[in-house]
Amino acid sequence: MKFQKATEFALYAVLELAADPARQLTAVEIADKYGISAHHLAKVLRDLGRAGLVDAVRGVGGGYRFAGNAKRLTLMDVIRLFEDVGTDSSDTAPRTTGEDIAEGLRFVVAELDAQTSATLRSISLSTMLKLVARHPWATEARPARRAARRAR
């Protein structure tokens, strides 16, 4: 799954702010940390503010602060603010002579979408921050990398 830039930036920002809800950060501070456009991130933060996930603190020393419940908010809650999720195109697709193959492919893609959606709905921001702290990819990826090397 490839997210739009706005979605990716929103996840960076929300997770960065949720890691320390008492801390205020500006769009520039977050953008610098992740090497992303501060201008684009500022727009994303305004959207997150309208959704109630962050609070904007105005004035000198202002910035943004996390305003949600990290144990309740999931990755999907953030993603669906920026992506068109949960729409099923299979019912609206035109019928063609290749209908069976087209439906079969939609069936497989729907299987992938269901798996992706369940995963994103099951991971709260709090769980995601714990996962980041544990770095499971450092140990879990090794066998996969070894297998990939062996397969070459």
Partner: peptide, 18 residues
């Protein structure tokens, strides 16, 4: 179960991944 978000979230919160 894929649609049981409560129990899925619980196991994820314990550190379980795919």
């Amino acid at each position: 179960a894929r649609d049981n978000t409560v129990i899925h979230s619980f196991f994820r919160s314990q550190g379980m991944t795919a």
